[in-house]
């Protein structure tokens, strides 16, 4: 591990949803350019982590701290976190009827540019970029004119999330079970898209239940999240270990139904 400054630092995070505690003392440190996989059984709090970090209403932090580039993330509004470079690729992206993908994306990009003190991008330039992004994630260009996620298949929604990531160029990407519901071809497209975005100043948190995705997106670190805490960390080999043995051996008191999940 190098001595470069951390991008994201989570210290002793406790968070709850509807008064139910889900994250129970989580620590994580991510440096620029690193890819961290977070694995764990259903109900471990994997998706909750993404929502807490991005500031979703209803997810409240009880204690602990989170900094992004040294700034207090928890003090920021959802949109300011996005503008600071945090991107969440949703597991189940919502539809926004009537609002075209292109319109939505340009507004997002412009809002983020404005926050950085940059001018709005010209429509022509943006259209060019957006078409290139479509191509890269294997979405027909016509999808730019369709309503955000409106009538998209599961795989198309995931690729649309990825396309947004390509255009928004975030510093920290949280991929929330991006592999769920994808067939192997779609999975490869998504993985290639992610890999193409790996760089020294962009980090990833890849949240997944299965090791499969990590065959394509090689993580630097793998963490096991169980009952709201990271119970084990290691390198990519840990994922293979989990694949072979399941999660049960890591949990203190495994419940029957969780073993099956």
């Amino acid at each position: 591990m190098s001595n470069t400054k951390s991008l994201l630092t989570i210290k002793d995070l406790h968070a709850s949803v509807e008064e139910k505690q889900i994250i129970k003392g989580l620590d994580l440190d991510i440096k620029p350019g690193e890819v961290h996989a977070i694995m764990g059984p259903n109900g471990a709090g994997k998706s909750t982590l993404g929502y807490v970090l991005s500031g979703r209403d209803g997810y409240s932090v009880e204690s602990g701290s989170v900094t992004l580039n040294g700034e207090d993330l928890l003090e920021m509004e959802t949109e300011d976190r996005a503008r600071a470079g945090l991107f969440l690729a949703f597991q189940y992206p919502v539809e926004i009827p009537g609002v075209s993908n292109l319109e939505f994306l340009k507004a997002s990009v412009d809002a983020q540019r404005e926050a950085r003190g940059e001018d709005a991008i010209s429509s022509a330039d943006f259209l060019k970029e957006a078409k290139a992004a479509c191509k890269q994630v294997n979405l027909p260009v016509a999808f730019l004119k369709r309503g955000v996620n409106e009538g998209f298949s599961g795989g198309e929604k995931k690729r649309n999330e990825l396309m947004q990531m390509l255009l928004l160029k975030p510093k920290l990407c949280i991929l929330d079970e991006t592999d769920s519901g994808l067939d192997i071809d779609a999975l490869q497209v998504v993985a290639e898209g992610v890999n193409s975005q790996r760089s020294a100043d962009r980090s990833f948190i890849v949240v997944t239940h299965y090791q499969r995705l990590l065959d394509y997106i090689k993580p630097d670190f793998v963490h096991v999240l169980s009952d709201g805490k990271i119970v084990k960390s290691g390198d990519a080999s840990l994922a293979l270990e989990l694949e072979a043995q399941g999660y049960a051996w890591l949990q203190k008191e495994p419940a029957e139904d969780e073993l099956e999940g």
């Binding site: 500031g55 509004e77 919502v94 926004i96 319109e103 939505f104 997002s108 809002a111 926050a115 955000v148």
Partner: peptide, 28 residues
């Protein structure tokens, strides 16, 4: 919906812009 608002804000739009965009989409 809360989900629509959250998606817009997660992409960096302020709530006012998000609402007007969703409402305009509805009226398109």
């Amino acid at each position: 919906s809360d989900e629509q608002m959250f998606l817009c804000r997660q992409r960096g739009l302020d709530p006012e812009k998000a609402v007007s965009m969703i409402v305009n989409g509805f009226c398109k």
